[in-house]
């Protein structure tokens, strides 16, 4: 009856991937929200954005949009388990909580990338006319992806923690934004430097180090939450 750790992780990954594909509103809702935010930002800034600030505004727009839409996605991470109290069955069964968290984590990174990439494309499209001389570097996208790695761990952990509390909708942003802000700040800095052609390798290492730190912390604390 024993299932190895790796096999259980794969089982959870397949399961959560099936869950994501079967409830498509979990993908479309944050994406539509991103699009709405981008439209509002562009209306607010108007037509006359000084060329010198274009890159800064583009990066700020991307990250602020992601900040809000990711919060929507992460807050609902464990809704599937809460709907019919599958959480309790998971706690009773002989499953590895590390495998559960890792399965959830990997699927959430991939599914949220599917929200992030169209959002970044939309942000670029709305400013496209004025961005013809801005290079799109690999490191710009990599900074966003690296931020996602840490934020997914943190977002999933906080979602599991606050699942059964009545003030969840208020509490979640109060913890997610401050705790996730170092990742956002660092990723935003790297993205800006990447577009400006500055050196970013050391900052990237710091960001990846923070991601690893948050992932390990989230794994350890998730085990404590479930037991």
């Amino acid at each position: 009856m024993k299932c190895s750790f790796l096999k259980q992780t794969v089982v959870f990954m397949k399961h959560y991937a099936r869950c994501e594909l079967s409830s498509k509103e979990r993908f479309f809702a944050p994406l539509l929200f991103s699009a709405t935010l981008l439209v509002m930002f562009n209306f607010s800034f108007g037509e006359s954005i000084p060329r010198g600030y274009m890159v800064n505004i583009f990066v700020a727009e991307v990250f602020i949009t992601l900040l809000f839409s990711l919060q929507l996605s992460f807050m609902r991470q464990f809704d599937l388990e809460s709907e019919d109290n599958a959480f309790e069955v998971l706690r009773v069964s002989n499953v590895s909580y590390y495998a559960l968290f890792l399965g959830k984590y990997f699927v959430s990174v991939i599914s949220i990338l599917c929200v992030v990439l169209p959002s970044v494309f939309l942000a670029w499209f709305f400013l496209a006319a004025d961005l013809v001389d801005v290079e799109f570097s690999f490191y710009f996208y990599f900074s966003i992806f690296a931020a996602l790695l840490g934020l997914s761990a943190l977002g999933s952990l906080i979602s599991a923690l606050l699942q059964k509390l009545s003030g969840r909708e208020l509490l979640y942003p109060l913890f997610f934004y401050p705790l996730g802000s170092p990742l956002f700040l660092l990723a935003q800095q790297i993205a800006l430097f990447a577009l400006e052609g500055k050196e970013i390798f050391s900052l990237l290492l710091v960001l990846l180090g923070l991601d690893l730190f948050y992932l390990v912390l989230a794994l350890l604390l998730f085990d404590e939450i479930m037991t």
Binding site: L157, L161, L165, L174, F175, Y177, P178, L179, L221, I225
Partner: peptide, 30 residues
């Protein structure tokens, strides 16, 4: 903000068991 949110969380997690689990995890994260 995190300290303030911790105080708010304490009020919302009314039982000792919830505080022991949820508030202590948040304390470690802070």
């Amino acid at each position: 903000i995190l300290y303030g949110a911790y105080h708010f969380l304490w009020q919302v997690a009314e039982t000792t068991e919830k505080r022991m689990k949820i508030c202590s995890v948040i304390g470690i994260l802070i």
